[in-house]
Design a protein around this nucleic acid. Structure first.
Lengths: 240, 240
DNA sequence: AAATTTAAATGTAAAGAATACACTTAAAAA
DNA sequence: TTTTTAAGTGTATTCTTTACATTTAAATTT
């Protein structure tokens, strides 16, 4: 027997909607010191051939988070990345093809991580935030809000590390923050602040590509961070 | 001729979903000094007769914001209130009746504003946050997140005033903050901080119900706030 | 092998913000 | 007139943020 006798009946007169997930995928180009966005060329109408965010429709037996992961995986080959819901866009005319409600997610991945073959096959490419092409629909809105989300996130949570390789120099970390905040920060104050938290581990190894002296590599110590957090510590990189 | 020939066809194989809006409606009880939530008894299956948030389905030609406004209006008789999208809940099994994706909104209204007849007719009542009844589905999750949203909002935006009458005393304002933050704050530091912003206007009138001496009424000066904001001022009530 | 070049690394003083804290005042009621 | 009650007020201390310039390490050049 059907466990919910009213099932299918009770909601039957209500409108049903196409629900999409669009992913604002941020990457950090460590050489060009720029935040980039993973965009791709739409391969179907409407707006076929135009640049858009990575998106797709939510299936019947799939949560929103699962749909976002699936879409990201399909386009980048990546699985467990940093991903958070951003905002849901529901204007009736936002997609000229049909009424589509879209849940935006923002994701952080190191640029090096992306599968090049998959990227090519999907018409995917990294575009620097500074000079984005025209995006379809309300995708520019989505990008703006997600960038704000990102700025808030890196200020109060240690998620910037998701955009860097496992080991990184303090210079690289600062460059990342400057790219996200879109302003310069003071070197000594930045270092004082991040190091005083005690969540970075200095390695016995130097990065020697970009300077003669070489800069020490550090890595983020997640365990230490978790322990501190349990004791009431709050991450804060609101630095000048 | 149909302006979009691919319309209706291109997305035709995609799942369609019921999309709901649930409203976490906060009110402030100035006498009991408590944040309250507007709840109501479901009048249909599933979970008929159980307590739930104010909710409803999104219609075909209606944006999410419009749906949220409509639902609020229907249940409270109120029109232009402070209302913001909170989060979208999309677990496949979150509503046992059917797969429903729900966009949560949180709203702030002064308790006095609500239309009593409408409230009665809809089975609506204010419940203190401290002792909420069991709520259906994932509504407890929604409340938790919305409360966090509210705490963040009042800290960095002058929205607490939405929960108070036009004129209020500093004691009342502080009580409100304490109710939202769920902790005591220092009286002198609180006053110093809020008054130093210069966005409150002292009236020549006292509230004389609650004390012999009487406390001066103030009102929030929105114009001044807007002017200050344009000049780079940031509201901040992160007080001890 | 000495001098030069380049970017990494480092500390301190001053200003501003957050905190802790207790008595006085106004007005009604006794 | 005294008592009661809640409103209103200021300062010193600590902590945080900011501003700012020189030294150091290592490779490259002379």
């Amino acid at each position: 027997m059907e466990p919910f006798p009213w099932k299918m009946k009770v909601y039957s007169d209500k409108s049903r909607h196409l629900v999409a997930v669009d992913c604002i995928i941020f990457g950090y180009d460590i050489l060009e010191k720029e935040i980039k966005l993973l965009l791709f060329k739409r391969m179907f109408e409407p707006a076929k051939g135009k640049w858009s965010l990575a998106g797709g429709f939510v299936d019947n037996n799939e949560s929103l988070d699962a749909a976002a992961s699936r879409i990201l995986r399909k386009l980048t080959g990546l699985d467990p990345v940093y991903m958070k819901q951003s905002f849901t866009y529901g204007e009736t005319d936002r997609d000229p093809g049909s009424r589509v409600i879209s849940v935006a997610y923002f994701a952080l991945i190191p640029i090096t991580d992306i599968d090049k073959d998959l990227a090519e096959e999907n018409g995917v490419s990294w575009c620097s935030l500074a000079k984005l092409p025209d995006l379809i629909f309300d995708h520019p809105l989505m990008v703006n809000r997600a960038l704000r989300d990102l700025q808030n996130q890196v200020m109060f949570k240690p998620v910037g590390f998701e955009l860097l390789p496992d080991k990184f120099t303090l210079v690289q970390l600062q460059d990342l923050y400057e790219a996200i905040y879109q302003r310069k920060v003071d070197k000594r104050n930045f270092r004082k602040k991040i190091l005083s938290m005690g969540i970075l581990e200095k390695l016995d190894e130097k990065e020697s590509e970009t300077s003669k002296k070489g800069a020490y590599y550090y890595k983020f110590n997640e365990d230490t961070y978790k322990r501190l957090k349990e004791n009431g510590f709050y991450f804060n990189m609101d630095v000048n």
